[in-house]
Write a protein that binds this DNA or RNA. Sequence first.
DNA 1: TTGTAGGCGTTATCAT
DNA 2: ATGATAACGCCTACAA
Lengths: 353, 353
Amino acid sequence: MPSRRDTRPGKVTIFDVAARAGVSIKTVSRVVNNESNVRDQTREKVLSAVRELRYRPNAAARALSGNRSRVVGLVYENAQEFGYTQHVLNGALAVCEARDYALLLCPIGLPSPDIVERVRDFTAEGRIEGMLLPAPMGDLPEVRSLLGELRIPFAAITPKDPLPQEINVTCKDRDATFALTEYLIEQGHRAIGFVTGHPDHGASAERYAGYREALRKHGVPLAKERVRQGYFDFESGKQAARALLDLEAGPSAIIASNDDMAAGVLFEARERGVAVPDDLSIVGFDDTRIASRVWPPLTTARQPIARMAETATRLLIDRLNGEPARSPQEPFECELVIRESTARSREPLTARR
Amino acid sequence: MPSRRDTRPGKVTIFDVAARAGVSIKTVSRVVNNESNVRDQTREKVLSAVRELRYRPNAAARALSGNRSRVVGLVYENAQEFGYTQHVLNGALAVCEARDYALLLCPIGLPSPDIVERVRDFTAEGRIEGMLLPAPMGDLPEVRSLLGELRIPFAAITPKDPLPQEINVTCKDRDATFALTEYLIEQGHRAIGFVTGHPDHGASAERYAGYREALRKHGVPLAKERVRQGYFDFESGKQAARALLDLEAGPSAIIASNDDMAAGVLFEARERGVAVPDDLSIVGFDDTRIASRVWPPLTTARQPIARMAETATRLLIDRLNGEPARSPQEPFECELVIRESTARSREPLTARR
DNA sequence: TTGTAGGCGTTATCAT
DNA sequence: ATGATAACGCCTACAA
């Protein structure tokens, strides 16, 4: 029973616990790490010593010795709008905490010429054991190949082209945009503008596809001039709205590929005195906070971002603990949220009222 | 010249660098840590070896050996509204990155009965070397005394009662609310409602004081029924507005103690068809994103949150590196931002026009 | 089922 | 100014 050091105030080490429980440090280690081959009785003894001493294994020692830092890195786009990232953060943190992992942040302003160097730097001191890549980080091939090279497992949230051997969490945003568009059509809208998302985001193409599908299904021709490029931020939504509202035959409704842009559309409409939803219906995507804080609150599709992040984090940590890379069987569902930014079209296509 | 291990792919250690530079590992350590007592020539040799080998010291080994994790913890209130925290995060991360520290997050939902346990847990594995306490975390005595007990230095951002021997970063929010109120008075407003912030936040009392001072200076009586309790979130702003707009003699202007509540006030006004700013002027505080994304955009006071967080982080890291606890000489200034949510009062107190 | 020895990559101590 | 050697606290092998 080696008790290598005297009881010192402050730091309780594995030796203290071992001494107290009358076992070797290895046995303590086994118990702490939930390994097998420990008699229940011994385990109990150790556990009470742990409790009494308030022992917590030292993270640095564990990392150094076991070559596992128990830290997950989160690389995210540091944009003005933070609604999406906030949900990712919440989900990731919740799971990390439950699994006793820590989360380290790596904000990146896109586009970033030295992104590979930034990520390499982030992983440099051996701190990161696995990486979380929320959109659009999972879309960048240079990041993915770097992580592959570094042998750092990662989980991507809504990447553009999910590879089966990696961890990917996706959702049915295409279906959701389809449903949103169809809803507007059912409300009598025909001239429906669309603001796309950033072309580098995987979700952008999906959402645009959902819009076109719905138009096609209902025999509404796709008018190119009613489709504008946006970048997922408020300002680009505003600018897209400017162009759309300047059209001769302006739209009676506008779908923006996310809530931030929809808020921009709404802002522009108000500035021009266009009544929403009376003269213009507006639709967003994600149901982040801003959707219910502008007036009128936005009709949108609720993407379960936090839950998706939780799932990604869980699968990633499982993988770090030796399980194979898995992805959810099914993409997550998005739920339609009808609010006051949309109304029946006043155009005389259908009977009045 | 001990070269303890062969050149292995992947991990470059201090031994590799030492061998390459033809010095001992201690010398490499000195150079890497910018210690003195190294000949310039030797330093150069080591530095080029470091560069050529792309050597990065292992964080875990450093932490274990030096008893310094180079990690700063950020305990923050995990509220719905994230505008404030977003700026804190940005500021803290920027400085951490520059000083080669990492930032660990500890979100806490308030009120939290087990907050002390949560924070203790957060610090438990020896990961955290210093702690950042943005409002309102610096106001909680139990947290402060816990950190004192644990001998973990901390820096508070706008705490209620800053102690001189600790690191505190504050701003002149009292002056700013004073200026905002005065601005409204100059615009002809007399019936000015006020929504206070969460009573546990130090800033709440300050901002309320600024409001009262301005009224007093201009001989406007303080009407208790025009002051409502809020909690810094959107919903409480909405509810406060409900009460204020229900008053017989409703206010012609409302000052909310932050932007999120101001957005709630605006939302409620719109729901009732109260025209802003024609029938009601609205003022916020902070100039977080939401202030310029609602319509009309909010007149507010810009609190330099990110810069304050940067300063707090810098001072904290300095302290962790042996310097004494210092605080800025002067509180930070807040800047008035006049936007379209305020206008001249239409009440016939001053001449028309 | 349990324990012993050695090493993880640094920083710290004390020589020289 | 520089270097040898011992911690740091834990985990991994291998023994018993």
